[in-house]
Simulated assay, not measured.
Amino acid sequence: MKMNWEPFIGYMVNVTMHENYGLTFDSKNDQTLYEIVFKTGKLLSAYEDGLLLETTRENHKVNIFIPHTSVKCVEMFDIKGD
């Protein structure tokens, strides 16, 4: 299924990524803790192969390109980003 992202351009989105980071925290039990990866920002544009977000980190604008293959879930907030 393809989604029409155009109505959500300019909205704040929270993207849950398919990729997780594994960190071994207890070698005795051989257990791994997985950290879920999120990307949050204003949706600037949607392309055939991914989404472009804009966010601010340490007072600098940062653009983030997320390939569709990395997107697990997207939350769209009914607010426009600055």
Rank of each mutant, 00 (worst) to 15 (best):
M17Y: 04
L51F: 12
I66E: 06
N14L: 15
T24H: 12
V71T: 03
N20Y: 11
V74K: 01
L23V: 10
F25K: 12
E19L: 10
G22K: 01
K80E: 15
N59W: 11
S27W: 14
F77A: 03
T32E: 06
L52W: 02
L23C: 09
D49V: 01
N59A: 05
Q31G: 15
T55A: 03
L44A: 09
E19V: 05
S70L: 00
T16K: 11
F77N: 01
M17W: 03
L53R: 01
L44T: 02
W5L: 08
M3S: 04
T56L: 10
D49R: 07
I66N: 00
H68P: 03
I9P: 06
N29D: 14
G41D: 05
F77S: 00
L52H: 02
S27T: 10
P67V: 00
F65C: 00
Y21W: 12
L44P: 04
K2D: 13
N14M: 14
K42Y: 06
G22I: 02
N4T: 11
V71P: 01
H68M: 04
V13P: 00
P7A: 04
H60T: 09
N4L: 07
M3R: 09
N20V: 15
F8M: 03
F65V: 04
Y47P: 00
L33N: 12
E48A: 06
P67C: 00
L43M: 08
I66C: 00
E58H: 09
V15R: 01
I64V: 11
L53M: 05
E58N: 13
S45M: 07
A46M: 02
T69H: 00
I79Q: 09
S70V: 05
T55S: 10
V71A: 01
K61Y: 07
L53Y: 07
T69I: 01
S70F: 04
E54W: 05
F38W: 14
E6R: 12
K80Y: 10
F8Q: 01
Q31L: 10
T56N: 10
T40I: 08
I79S: 05
K2T: 11
E58M: 08
I36W: 15
V74I: 10
N20K: 11
I64F: 09
R57Y: 11
V74Q: 03
L44D: 03
I79H: 13
F65R: 09
T40K: 13
V13N: 02
T69V: 06
L53N: 07
W5G: 08
V74R: 05
K39D: 15
F38L: 08
E35N: 12
V62W: 11
Y34N: 14
I36Q: 15
K28R: 09
T24S: 15
L44N: 09
K72W: 01
N20L: 13
L43I: 05
E75H: 11
S70W: 01
D78W: 14
P7L: 07
K42C: 06
Y47L: 03
R57G: 07
E48G: 04
M12P: 02
L52E: 07
D30L: 06
T55Q: 09
R57W: 12
K42D: 13
M12N: 06
K39G: 09
E19F: 06
T40D: 08
N4C: 03
E75I: 15
I36N: 14
Q31W: 04
G50S: 01
